[in-house]
Nucleic acid binder design. Structure first.
Lengths: 210, 210
DNA sequence: CAAATTACTGAGTGAACGGTCAATGAAAAA
DNA sequence: TTTTTCATTGACCGTTCACTCAGTAATTTG
């Protein structure tokens, strides 16, 4: 099947083959966690979904723990790369940058049920798994710090209605709330539906002149 | 041990004995999930921590699934009873009632690392377990609705700076953010530290006269 | 008191799980 | 070409898990 196809296709280069396999397995892992939850996600099921043998899954990732960790890393880097990228292209005004950060949080690559679902699953286990904590802690912290800095900068330009730290917490909080809405809300819940209230709150905290 | 003590103490009444045991087991389950995560929480470990035999744990709860469900229910009812209670004792003004609801979210019985940790663990598995979804969905929905209604009422009295629904989402979002802060933040993070920013946001959305 | 119900124990069971391993074919290096 | 390395399979193994069960003691019912 896909195994054979890939063999005929790209197997000349072993490095590519290996990377392709790893991506395949990580995708299958995300599927499993999304549909079954972490506690029901087994190597056998991941292997089945990816079309590889169980032995091969272990061969590429050494063991289940590192597979899960690398899956989390993958999700994390995707998000990190995305908002760093968007931020780099944004204007200089703190408000624009904050807006860019908010929009990045609702980018299609991140803001979809499958990914958010897995995100929350890891999040729920992270307190008892130091590795998970380390992995998402780093990104989370960086994101939080950036939001905080922007709120401070914005406060400096024209003092908002909230202490900068409170503003930052509020914004991060409502973003998280919209992520939850995506998971629980109606199937029609879209990027725009999520974005509007966040911007409304931002405008409330930092009313813009004109 | 505690088994013997309890036998000598209250075993005259079998109903009490059974309830006492169930509470013991649920406490042990919460401990396990807090310290090990759901995926490492086993009947054997729960039994060990509660001081009962594994067979007895199964005897009282039939199987692991219902034990976990009832643990979640316990947490849920605790929270539900708490905020309903606080709300019943609050004044009539929507602002007072909203404040009561916020304070209830940071009540010591709920707002502590052990409980919040377990809460998030279930939350992370709830997407793939319909039972969990049903159990916390009901409470969550009720809480959300109440917050929304109060925001609408408050808006009617003196229009706030946000659409009522956005205000509700913002408030729920920042509460959640403070729950996360308790988990990740410094050990010294206290009820008051969590409360202040939420009230600050509330005052920003609904500035009070006087 | 006798009978019936309930609480409890601990050994035992089958299934599922994560991980190993020898064997095989194919690619890369020598 | 020969040798070495890598990718892959599938059978296999030891462990752990949730759950059962026969047996026992204590409690409630009649």
């Amino acid at each position: 099947m896909s195994t054979v196809t890939q063999k005929n296709f790209a197997s000349r280069n072993r490095r590519r083959q290996s990377e392709f396999r790893k991506q395949q397995v990580i995708d299958a892992t995300i599927d499993c966690i999304d549909q079954l939850g972490i506690s029901q996600t087994t190597l056998a099921r991941i292997a089945e979904r990816s079309g590889l043998s169980q032995g091969n899954v272990v061969f590429h990732f050494k063991n289940k723990d590192t597979l899960l960790e690398q899956t989390l890393m993958h999700l994390n880097e995707e998000h990190l790369a995305n908002w760093r990228d968007v931020l780099a292209q944004a204007g200089n005004h703190p408000r624009d940058r904050l807006l860019a950060l908010i929009e990045a949080s609702f980018a299609p690559a991140v803001f979809n049920r499958r990914k958010i679902s897995v995100w929350f699953a890891f999040w729920g286990e992270s307190r008892s798994k130091a590795a998970y904590m380390r992995i998402c802690g780093a990104n989370d912290q960086a994101f939080s710090n950036t939001v905080s800095e922007l709120c401070i900068a914005l406060h400096g330009l024209s003092p908002g209605r909230l202490a900068p730290q409170t503003a930052a917490t509020s914004i991060e909080g409502i973003i998280d709330a919209q992520w939850q809405n995506l998971l629980l809300g109606p199937p029609g819940f879209k990027r725009g539906d999520a974005l509007a209230p966040v911007i409304e709150l931002l405008d409330c905290i930092y009313p813009h002149a004109g």
